[in-house]
Write a protein that binds this DNA or RNA. Structure first.
Length: 465
DNA sequence: GGAACTCGCCAC
DNA sequence: AAACGTGGCGAGTTCC
C-alpha cells in the first residue's frame, strides 16, 4: 500500500514536521554514562549468578544431556524442542509458524520452578542488551540523538531508532527504573513531558461523530471505562476510588474497551479479562477463585460474585462478554459501528481512504486496517502540528529550552527553569486551544497532561505538574 | 559471511 | 465469518 499527501497543508505538515524533528534530533538527550556502566556491571553480575544457579538444576542437566552438551540458554528454539519434543510436554500455546511457544506466558503456565530463573535472566538481558547497550553504542559526548522517522509507518505514525526513544520501559518497575534513571536534561535544566490524553479516542469521534462517545469526551466527570466495568462485572455501584474497583476498571479498559476499539472480539477479550487480569481459570469456577473485590462493604472472591450472579464457568463468562459486546456496538456506540461500516464501503468503492488531515492511504488493507489507520494517523498529526508550532515559537523567542523527543502522543522537552512556566503555558495553548481552532473538524476538547522532573532530575523522577 | 527469517519483548 | 492496530531491535537460526 502507499501513502501520500493530497493537500498543500498535508505536504507542509510533513515538510515542517521533519525539520522540527531534525532539530530535536540535533539537541539530543543527556545520558549519565558512568551510571550506565555501573548498571551494566550490576546486571552482568546478577545474570551470571542466576545462570550459575540455573545450570545446577536437574532441568538444565537434562537439557544439556539431550543436546549433547551444546546448550544455549538464549535459544528459544532449543528450549522449545527440549520442552515439547524431548520432555513431551503438551504446548499450551503455539507460535505463528506452529512450534510450541516459549514466551513468558507459555513458560509460566508450565509451572516449572526452574524456569523462573530463566525468565528473570531474559528480563535482565533485555534491559542490558537492548536498552543500556544501545545508549552506550549511540552516545556521543554523553548525549544520544534518536532518529525520528515520518516515512516508515503505514498508519502515518512515526518511528524512532538509533536508539529507539519510543520503547523505553514504562510498566515494569525494575526495568523502568534502570533505563530511565540514566536519562537527564542538560545541567541545571528540567525534563518535561506533555502527553495528549485519550487522543486516539478523541480522533475517532472526529470521524464517527458518535453521540455517546462525544458525551464521554466532553464530560470529564463521566467515565466510559467505569461504566463498562460496572456492566462487565455486574456491579450495582461503582466507587472509583475503591482499590479493587480500580483494578476492575483497568482490566476493563485494557482487556475490553481498547481491544474492542482496535477490532478485537469477545472471545479474546474474555480470555484476557478472566485469566490475565482477574486470575480466573478457563474451566468451571468454584468458590475462592480470582481477585478479591468489595461488594456491599464485604470482601468477596470474584468467582463467588460471578457464581451468585449465575455465571459459573469461563464458558458462561464468554457468553456474557459476547452480550456486552453486542450491546457495546449495537446500542452504546451504535453510531461508531455504523461509521466503521460506511468507511469500509467507501474504501471498497474507491480503493483508498482520505484522512481529515489531507493524507491518503491507498492499496490493499483489511477491515481493521481501514477503521484503525485514520484514527492512529490523525492522532499523530495532532502531535506533529503541535511540535511544529512549539518549535517555531521556541526559535522566534530564542528559548534556551529545547524539544528533545516525541512518543506518538507525547513531547519531551529539556527546559530552563526560568522558562518553565512560559513553556508549560505555550504547550497548553498550542495543544488545547490553537490546534482545535486551526482544525475546525476537531469536535471534542483536547487535554494534555504535563509531567516534570526536578532540576537535574532523571526521567525516572517525573511527576504530574 | 551476510541476508532473511523466527521468536520474544519493549513502547503507544 | 472471523476475530487486535503500529513500530524497533536483540539473539538464534537457516539459507545461499
Amino acid at each position: 500500500m502507499t501513502l501520500h499527501p493530497k493537500t498543500k497543508e498535508a505536504y507542509q505538515l510533513f515538510h515542517n514536521g521533519i525539520l522540527a524533528l531534525s532539530r530535536a534530533e540535533r539537541a539530543g538527550i543527556r545520558i549519565d554514562m558512568e551510571k550506565v556502566e555501573r548498571e551494566q556491571q550490576i546486571l552482568t553480575r546478577k545474570i551470571a549468578k542466576l545462570e550459575d544457579r540455573f545450570r545446577q538444576t536437574k532441568f538444565y542437566r537434562h537439557w544439556e544431556h539431550s543436546m549433547n552438551g551444546k546448550v544455549n540458554i538464549n535459544s528459544n528454539h532449543q528450549l522449545s524442542i527440549f520442552l515439547y519434543k524431548i520432555k513431551k510436554i503438551k504446548p499450551e500455546k503455539i507460535t505463528e509458524s506452529g512450534q510450541g511457544s516459549t514466551d513468558d506466558e507459555a513458560l509460566r503456565t508450565l509451572n516449572l520452578p526452574e524456569l523462573d530463573d530463566l525468565l528473570e535472566i531474559r528480563k535482565l538481558k533485555k534491559i542490558r542488551d537492548t536498552y543500556l547497550n544501545s545508549f552506550t553504542r549511540e552516545q556521543v559526548d554523553g548525549y544520544v540523538h534518536p532518529v525520528f522517522n515520518l516515512h516508515l509507518v503505514k498508519t502515518y505514525r512515526s518511528s524512532s531508532d538509533s536508539p529507539n526513544f519510543q520503547n523505553i520501559p514504562a510498566k515494569d518497575e525494575e526495568a523502568m527504573s534502570i533505563c530511565r534513571k540514566v536519562l537527564f536534561p542538560r545541567p541545571g535544566h528540567i525534563l518535561l513531558e506533555a502527553d495528549f490524553k485519550s487522543i486516539e479516542v478523541a480522533m475517532s469521534a472526529c470521524y464517527n461523530h458518535d453521540t455517546q462517545l462525544i458525551h464521554y469526551l466532553k464530560n470529564p466527570s463521566s467515565d466510559m471505562h467505569a461504566d463498562m466495568a460496572k456492566q462487565i462485572f455486574l456491579l450495582d455501584t461503582f466507587d472509583k476510588s475503591e482499590k479493587s474497583n480500580k483494578l476492575l476498571r483497568i482490566a476493563t479498559k485494557n482487556g475490553f474497551v481498547f481491544p474492542e476499539f482496535y477490532g478485537d472480539y469477545f472471545g479474546n477479550c474474555a480470555i484476557n479479562m478472566a485469566c490475565r487480569w482477574c486470575g480466573l481459570p478457563q474451566g468451571t469456577w468454584t468458590t475462592g477463585q480470582g481477585v478479591e473485590i468489595v461488594q456491599g462493604g464485604k470482601q468477596v472472591y470474584l468467582s463467588d460474585h460471578f457464581i451468585s450472579k449465575g455465571i459459573k464457568s469461563f464458558a458462561a463468562f464468554t457468553k456474557h462478554i459476547e452480550k456486552v459486546e453486542n450491546d457495546f456496538w449495537g446500542r452504546r456506540f451504535a453510531e461508531y459501528a455504523e461509521w466503521k461500516n460506511r468507511w469500509w464501503s467507501v474504501y471498497q468503492k474507491h480503493g483508498y481512504i482520505d484522512l481529515l488531515t489531507g493524507f491518503r492511504c491507498q492499496g490493499v488493507m483489511s477491515y481493521n486496517d481501514i477503521t484503525n489507520y485514520p484514527i492512529q494517523g490523525t492522532a499523530f498529526h495532532c502531535l506533529l502540528w503541535s511540535i511544529i508550532e512549539i518549535d517555531q515559537i521556541m526559535r522566534q523567542e530564542q528559548w534556551d529550552s529545547k524539544l528533545i523527543g516525541q512518543i506518538h502522543d507525547s513531547m519531551i522537552f529539556d527546559v530552563h527553569p526560568d522558562e518553565f512556566p512560559h513553556v508549560c503555558d505555550i504547550i497548553r495553548k498550542v495543544t488545547c486551544e490553537w490546534l482545535p481552532k486551526t482544525w475546525s473538524w476537531i469536535n471534542v476538547p483536547l487535554y494534555v497532561e504535563l509531567e516534570a522532573a526536578p532540576v537535574d532530575g532523571s526521567w525516572m523522577e517525573k511527576e504530574k505538574v
